[in-house]
Structures are given as structure tokens and as C-alpha cells.
Amino acid sequence: MTLAATAPQGFLSPTGVEIVFLLVGVVTLGAALITVTSKQLVHAALWLVVTLGGVAVEYLLLTAEFIAWMQVLIYVGSVVVLLLFGLMLTKAPIGPSPDADSGNRWAALAVAGGAAAALVWVVVDAFRTQWIDLDTAQGSTGDVGAILFRHWVLPFEALSVLLLAALVGAIVLSRKNGTTNEESRQGSQAREASEGRREEGKS
């Protein structure tokens, strides 16, 4: 990210990219809302695809190409597939499931609103005066790799260990409970995710 202090930036003269960014953001937010409020389980999962795809498009608009494709690869390609797999295994009905609605609607809303407010506040406070120069690509694979392995090696490795722990934990759980397929699949998924992260590093 570069500081472009000299250029006159304002909220009242948005560029085309900014407008698109906002529109996609609105769509993403809407899809996310439908995801959590929909009473049809599989529809919720599919709206999640729209949400995650919207986030990927936002990354793309910010020229963070690598992150965008990773988002699609891991979340849309694997996590949602796993989710749908689980829903199919539990025989999600076509049409609304009445028991999909928990009684904690208001509590969930409060927590989500609080978390969102905190995040927005922190991000706005931290990057208030910074503008990303979108004319040159900021998030190409090379840049991400360099940043990840120069400045953020320690968190990266810590994350790897965390995923490894999750993997081992999944194996242990599935061993103890006999051979339930569901958990071994979760284990494989965790492993896949961790491998995905490894590749990010390697490339």
C-alpha cells in the first residue's frame, strides 16, 4: 500500500472502480444477509457462494489477484463443496426447514453487529488517510510471497502449525469414534486447506 497524499482524493468524486467496488460490496452484503436468514439450508449454502465470490471480486478490484483466486479455490471450490456434501449427507429437504431457525436471532444480530462495528472502526481508524494506488498491481503473487516470507514468516508458520494440529486432532477424533466417514473427510479437508496454505508459500 502506498500513500498518495498529494493527489486530491475525495468521497464526492468517486472513480469507476470505486463505484463498482461499492456495488459489489452491497451485493455481497445482501447475499450474506440472505445466507444467515434463509430457512432453506442449501439455498443458504449457495448464497454463501455468492458472498464469497463477491469478496473475491472485491479483492480483484483492489488488484490483489492472488488472494482473489485463493479465495475462489479454497472457499468456493472446497469449503462450500464440503458444506454441500454435509448438507446432502444429512438429506437437506427441498423447501424450508422449520427447525433451521434458532431462537438466538437477536443475540446473533447483536454479536454480528458488534463485531462488524469493531472491525469497521479499527480498519477505518488505521487506514483513514491511506489510499491504494490501483494503477499498479499491489497484490501480485510475487508481492504477496515476498511480504509473507519477509515480514510475516512467524505468523505464517504459526498458522501452519495450527492447521497441522487441526489435522492431527481430526485424525485422533476419527480413530477414537471408530470409522465414521464424516470426520475423516473433515480431516482431509483440513489437510487440504493446510496444503493450500503451503502452496501459497511455495509459489
Partner: peptide
């Protein structure tokens, strides 16, 4: 020319499977 070509290609190809999943579930 896509900068992260491999990941672009594999990511988007993986997304295609969603079609089969949707078809499988929605057919009743």
C-alpha cells in the same frame, strides 16, 4: 494473461463442480 494463472485456472475449474452438486440436490 493472468498473473496467478495456475490458481485462476484450478480455482475456476473447481467452481464448475458446484453445478453438478446443485443439479444433484435440486432434482429431488
Amino acid at each position: 494473461v493472468v498473473d496467478a494463472g495456475i490458481f485462476f485456472v484450478l480455482a475456476v475449474m473447481g467452481a464448475g463442480v458446484l453445478g453438478s452438486l446443485m443439479a444433484g440436490w435440486a432434482s429431488a
